[in-house]
Design a protein around this nucleic acid. Sequence first.
DNA 1: TTGCATGCAAATTTTTTGCAGCCAG
DNA 2: CTGGCTGCAAAAAATTTGCATGCAA
Lengths: 146, 146
Amino acid sequence: MKNLRITEQDRFRALLRGAGFKATTARIRLLRILERAHEPLSVEKITKRLGSLAPDMATIYRSLRNLHAAGILRHVDFQHRHAHYELNDPKDHHHFTCTNCGKMVNFENCDVTKLISRVLRRTPSFSKVTEHSLELFGLCAQCAKK
Amino acid sequence: MKNLRITEQDRFRALLRGAGFKATTARIRLLRILERAHEPLSVEKITKRLGSLAPDMATIYRSLRNLHAAGILRHVDFQHRHAHYELNDPKDHHHFTCTNCGKMVNFENCDVTKLISRVLRRTPSFSKVTEHSLELFGLCAQCAKK
DNA sequence: TTGCATGCAAATTTTTTGCAGCCAG
DNA sequence: CTGGCTGCAAAAAATTTGCATGCAA
């Protein structure tokens, strides 16, 4: 029974292979951390969460860059001075961040796809959207009270 | 006649004073460059365009950071490894960038405001949106043909 | 005159690169 | 085996900071 189940390892292995990458332990560990995080992580946070299993930073940067180019990861900009990455969830969620306390929530089903189609229809000089970013910044309920 | 007209200088001076800043020549030059650019600029491009009139880089970074915090500038992320800034135009336009050749066009009236209100209504843990980012990446008509 | 701004120089932080050796396929 | 990956070390790029001086108000 147990060995018939598709493990997390296998899932990531297939994902990597499918994109033409070798399924190395470093990359599988990276994907695992990102999946469990449920929020976009910086290189620093990834390294900390991997602890002693963390590969060299150069490897992390290279992996993130390649996996992003392959569409496996999304690049998220929190207007800090460093990049954040998360798994490219097909559900296409986005983030709402409190600029005061840093709290973050996800939101989805926001119809950004429709918005994008409309823009694309109106913009003949461009023919295809492959990626988009949509981030909201503001105040959470607690911080707004103060 | 001529001296009754509100000059660009005066406009920026008022803008800076209104936000509690001193209207220094360095900052006025910076705003002037950004206004004329019609596209978000990196620190490098700002420096180049200012030429011999460019203040120290530290000053540029400090100015950009402060003017952004005051809402005078917008922070734009093109998924490069450095920040870009543009004047915070009340028209709220966004950018569509070709990932192949770097070409960029602006678009506006994309109803992102409605989208934001909807999200806000559905997200009781957050009470106010002060800033947002929306960027499209894809292929321009020329690059898509190839 | 007074304190916010700037220049200068140095330090930090973030990201990239070259190259030799390693390991997944 | 073998070419893509990784570690290591060094460099490059991007951004910040401390402090003395300068200039707008």
